[in-house]
Design a protein around this nucleic acid. Structure first.
Length: 512
RNA sequence: GGCCCGUUCGUCUAAGGGUUUAGGACGCAAGAUUUUCAUUCUUGUAAUAGGGGUUCGAAUCCCCUACGGGCUACCA
């Protein structure tokens, strides 16, 4: 029987989840669902200093908003818990100890200060210090010290850590599911810390132990982890788990829209787009970061946009529901190179999704906006009609009002530029004539009005161009809006005439 | 600096050695429609980083160079 596919999203609660993290979660989710597997959420909180209160809740809420619900993990539970590494603390030491016994790791007593000093010194000589196969022979550790000394030090309560003993000269080869064969030589690698002086494992140890214990079959993570893949491979081997170690897939990074480097949390403020799924208020620094949710994006649009950052279906399709993404997702179609994020396209996606939205919902959105402004929304059928007319002009539901205001409010002022250009000396006369004409119109609906109005204009030998803009200006206040006759119809005779009269009076004054 | 990864229109990407005058989408531009604005539609714009190989044939395979990115903590 085939092994059940199990993947995990394993963020660290050091702050809000950034859209790159969401994409990693998404790809993991898609891969799991595509293969009828499990998607787990594990919180990697092995660094006590970097823990940020609220970050974990933020992560859970973000995934929820995106519709990426884990099958197992923090907040859900499951047979392989706990899923918070801090709660698994006591579990890791025995594996570290096992590595020492098998000769794959060792105790080290060098203090952080000593190591910093070595690094600074190396730097001043334009070299690089690394704790590796060469330097470990001259440092304070259980490889250089006698067993007796080591035991004494530990007994005396001296701080110690455990490091991985990197093989001296070996080529580690691994077949990355996205990148193909990747090779490393251990001579270039350093002896990474596996177990810290505070009694916590480092990411490296914890993630290997947990992935094994939780029966993870595929590790899908960002490219920033590619360099530590050989360490992890070697750890699986040293722990005797090589047979069923997971496969690896390293995702390309998401890059800044302009400039160099990967997308960072500051880019959003600088360029006016969110980099976080939902708003984040840092409890410590009081900093505030906007989110896609609060900016009015639909989660479906956000997810769709993210899915295409580094992945494609192999054809020209660009709009996918989550269900379709699950059907079509494949790691083979994940690209290797970094993807530059394009905020304009993100908006385009939202526009697409807004058009597909149920009009009832959009009508309700506009209804709420009117309520908030204490503006009577009037007849609900009329409201629905308005929404159907203006929705294609909206990228966000919040723009409903911006495109519908003139149906509810008479203009308070008139766009100066358009007035200057189109409001001629004889315009007030013409508008008055039109007003009188409209008073006599009986069939107050757009279609028939268009006809009779056209006849009227033709009879008068006026040009449409000279009439339509001033008319629009009078009713809307600017040269925007839906079809003129639809505006007339929806405004109703009384309101239309009132606005025309007001305009003739006010624009005359405005011009002086 | 060292190690690793990458490089097709401005951006996201397709083309899995011959189906390619390199396709789609966003953006941008023009035109049409709406006598406005927006939408929509049509058309256009624009790319295989450079140099060597391999091959009858290379965007595709190999090498070098350049450029970009990641990692290089008792962070994840």
């Amino acid at each position: 029987m085939e092994q059940k596919i199990r993947v995990r999203f394993a963020p660290s609660p050091t702050g809000p989840l950034h859209m790159g993290g969401v994409r990693t979660a998404l790809f993991n989710y898609l891969f799991a669902k595509k293969n009828n597997g499990d998607f787990l959420l594990r919180i990697e909180d092995t660094d006590q200093h970097r823990y940020v209160p609220g970050a974990e809740e933020y992560i859970i809420e973000s995934l929820k908003w995106c519709g990426l619900s884990p099958d197992e993990g923090v907040g859900i539970g499951g047979p392989y818990g706990p899923y918070r590494q801090s709660e698994r603390k006591q579990l890791y030491f025995k594996y570290a100890e096992q590595l020492i016994k098998s000769g794959n790791a060792y105790y080290a007593f060098d203090t952080p200060e000593e190591l910093t000093q070595l690094r600074t010194k190396a730097e001043s000589e334009k070299k690089n210090f690394s704790y590796d196969t060469h330097t470990r022979k001259e440092l304070k550790n259980s490889l250089t010290l006698s067993e007796k000394t080591v035991n004494e030090k530990i007994k005396n309560g001296e701080p110690w850590i455990i490091r991985f003993k990197m093989p001296e000269n070996e080529t580690v080869t691994e077949d990355d599911l996205i990148r193909g064969t990747v090779k490393f030589n251990t001579a270039q690698l350093d002896d990474k810390v596996l177990y810290k002086a505070d009694g916590m494992p480092t990411y490296h140890l914890a993630n290997v132990v947990d992935d094994h214990l939780m029966k993870i079959t595929h590790v899908i993570r960002g490219e920033e982890w590619l360099s530590s893949m050989p360490l992890h491979i070697l750890l699986y081997r040293a722990l005797g788990w090589e047979e069923n170690k997971p496969r690896f897939a390293h995702l390309p990074l998401i890059l800044k829209p302009v400039g160099k480097g990967k997308l960072s949390k500051r880019d959003g403020d600088k360029m006016g787009f969110p980099v976080f799924p939902i708003e984040w208020n840092n409890p410590e620094t009081k900093e505030n970061f906007r989110g896609y949710r609060e900016d009015g994006y639909y989660p479906e649009a956000f997810i769709n946009m993210l899915s295409l950052l580094g992945w494609n279906a192999g054809d020209d399709q660009e709009l996918f529901s989550l269900k379709e993404l699950i059907e079509k997702f494949s790691l083979e179609h994940v690209g290797k190179s970094g993807a530059r994020f394009n905020p304009e396209k993100a908006k385009w996606f939202n526009h697409q999704y807004l058009q597909k939205r149920d009009e009832k919902e959009l009508t309700e959105n506009l209804h709420e906006q009117l309520n908030q402004k204490n503006i009577p929304s009037g007849n609900l059928d009329r409201l629905a009609r308005i929404v159907s007319l203006i929705k294609d002009r909206c990228t966000f539901a919040s723009e409903l009002w911006d495109n519908a205001f003139y149906f509810f409010e008479a203009p308070k002022e008139y766009e100066a530029k358009a007035v200057k250009k189109r409001w001629k000396k004889d315009t007030p006369y013409k508008i008055r004539e039109i007003t009188d004409f409209l008073r006599g119109v009986e069939n107050w609906n757009a279609e028939s009005m268009k006809e009779v109005f056209s006849n009227f204009i033709t009879e008068k030998e006026w040009s449409f161009g000279q009439i339509m803009v001033p008319l629009r200006l009078s009713l809307v206040g600017s040269s925007q809006g839906v079809d003129m006759f639809l505006i007339l119809e929806l405004l109703g005779k009384e309101e239309t005439i009132k606005r025309l009269e007001t305009a003739v009076e006010k624009i005359g004054k405005q011009q002086i």
